[in-house]
Design a protein around this nucleic acid. Structure first.
Length: 254
DNA sequence: AAGTCTTGCAACCGCATATAC
DNA sequence: AGTATATGCGGTTGCAAGACT
């Protein structure tokens, strides 16, 4: 026996919304704003749970929603973002004004997946299908997409000096040639060479300006700041390499 | 015309995280 | 610090409409 949903507990309405319910919810939020979703149904006179009201507003009633089919630009953007972010629909949606995560998720599942397969691309890995299949056969245990990729950066220059610049290693390792790379809460646009944002929780501040060589990261002692080449602080053990792990869910550097 | 299958979308469910107390 | 409640997210389901036989 599973647990009862909030609607079951309170014998609230479920299923499709009627035009009357839409009107009540819309009018309420236009007049009073969102406030606390759990109190919205009561105040708006609806036999729905707050969760249901929130979803209806976000996915359907919001005035800033863009209606209609996705443009080619939006389609390309979704594919590029999905390659970097995976199924993090809300983050993808945040890059497409007027589109909801639910809408994008549905569009991906019903349309884009098919299109990519027709082009011979595996929608899960964004790699050619035969390559993905071959890898799968070689090692069926190993997932195709590693959600916790580990990147290594050399803080000691190699013989050619090619790794002198820390952020260039960072950029080469993490950022696709074109498209986006998300690192924690930061979003890097690979084509424009910039990033922004800061990680969540207790620490981590970011500001990168790759084009003009500015790079700051400050996380309570562990820090790399720079003007030119990187000053990498490996606080734990002064290893020759710095290992950065991208936390898939939380976004903090470990 | 009627029945079945497929597709697209709206909405629900359960879980994780954030916030309040 | 621990618990309860609210919110946000992604996966999944159910249904209506169109396509197909």
């Amino acid at each position: 026996m599973g647990r009862h949903s909030c609607c079951m507990k309170q014998k609230l309405r479920k299923g499709l919304w009627s035009p009357e319910e839409d009107e009540k919810l819309f009018n309420h939020i236009i007049r009073f704003g969102v406030g606390c979703w759990s109190s919205v149904p009561k105040l708006a006179g609806l036999q729905r749970c707050g969760k249901s009201c929130r979803l209806r507003w976000i996915n359907y009633l919001r005035p800033d929603l863009k209606r209609g089919s996705f443009s080619q630009e939006e389609e390309d953007l979704i594919i590029n973002l999905h390659e970097v972010l995976g199924n993090r629909w809300s983050q993808i949606a945040s890059q497409l004004p007027g589109r909801t995560d639910n809408e994008i998720k549905n569009f991906w599942n019903s349309c884009l997946k098919k299109k990519l397969r027709q082009r011979g691309i595996d929608p899960a890995t964004h790699k050619p299908l035969n390559e993905s299949e071959a890898k799968e056969k070689m090692d069926p245990e190993k997932p195709m997409f590693d959600p916790f990729p580990v990147f290594e950066f050399q803080s000691e220059p190699d013989q050619s000096g090619a790794n002198l610049n820390f952020y260039e290693q960072f950029q080469t390792s993490l950022i696709p040639a074109h498209g986006f790379c998300e690192y924690g809460n930061m979003l890097i646009d690979g084509s424009e060479n910039y990033c922004y944002g800061e990680s969540s929780g207790t620490s981590c501040n970011w500001s990168c300006n790759m084009g003009n060589e500015a790079l700051n990261w400050n996380s309570e002692g562990d820090q790399w700041q720079q003007g030119g080449s990187c000053q990498a602080n490996s606080s734990e053990d002064n290893n020759d390499s710095i290992q950065m792990r991208n936390s898939y869910f939380g976004g903090d550097l470990l």
